[in-house]
Design a protein around this nucleic acid. Sequence first.
DNA 1: TCCATATGTCGAGTAGTCTCGACATATGGA
DNA 2: TCCATATGTCGAGACTACTCGACATATGGA
Lengths: 123, 123
Amino acid sequence: MDSDQAILAFSALAQPTRLQVFRLLMEHEPDGLSAGEVARRMSVPHNTMSTHLAILTRAGLIDAERQSRSIVYRAQLEAMRGLAGFLVKDCCGGRPELCAPLIADLTLCCPPQKPSSKEVAHG
Amino acid sequence: MDSDQAILAFSALAQPTRLQVFRLLMEHEPDGLSAGEVARRMSVPHNTMSTHLAILTRAGLIDAERQSRSIVYRAQLEAMRGLAGFLVKDCCGGRPELCAPLIADLTLCCPPQKPSSKEVAHG
DNA sequence: TCCATATGTCGAGTAGTCTCGACATATGGA
DNA sequence: TCCATATGTCGAGACTACTCGACATATGGA
């Protein structure tokens, strides 16, 4: 993931509807949702949603696949991983010592079982 | 970190100059750089840079502190951690099983010593 | 072919962003 | 107080993003 790709991804997620769509599709992994279903659930006109889905797709955050008359969209976990990695590696490269607590923090967020609403303190 | 805060951060980083400024300040942790020094290094007029720095500050990604006549800006590692965490937790909450490989991938990005230019495969 | 369903594309209006000259504010020194 | 340095704020022009009606394309069935 280079800077241009990261900027595309940041731009795509910097919009309430699109951020919510991305999270919606994440919840529906690995089945995905059709474009119309996404538009309906978000109460957004289908053509507006089509534009948002295109932007998310261009950013590599989601992926489209035609299934009969529908086009099913799915979140691209690798893209999210790449974006999170971009943020983290950014400091790892120049300042590895700053990275360790950050990684530790992220690891804490994902315990073996349910994470509940427990937030990490300060870090 | 809630959605609104994440959108602020994404918006702030979705601009080439600001993304580069954030990375620049990350490289200069923990000393930071003055507003003028940042503007000079980026070859951007001071008032344009002032606007960008204000946006990054409002997003919580950087922090300002006056030192005599200068105002020194520093990267807020916690904000970056929060943003990366927001992305990761997003899938952890609904799909913990998707989170493990992601965390593993991030951990790989930051080996005990120098990371060199080795990229993780597949992801 | 004709129709219904599903989605994408185009165009225009509105709103927001980016940039930078001009001016304002804040600090330190004489 | 006066000046130089350092930074922030305002305003306008150019550009871009968001939205949605209207139209186009694609699939499946009769």
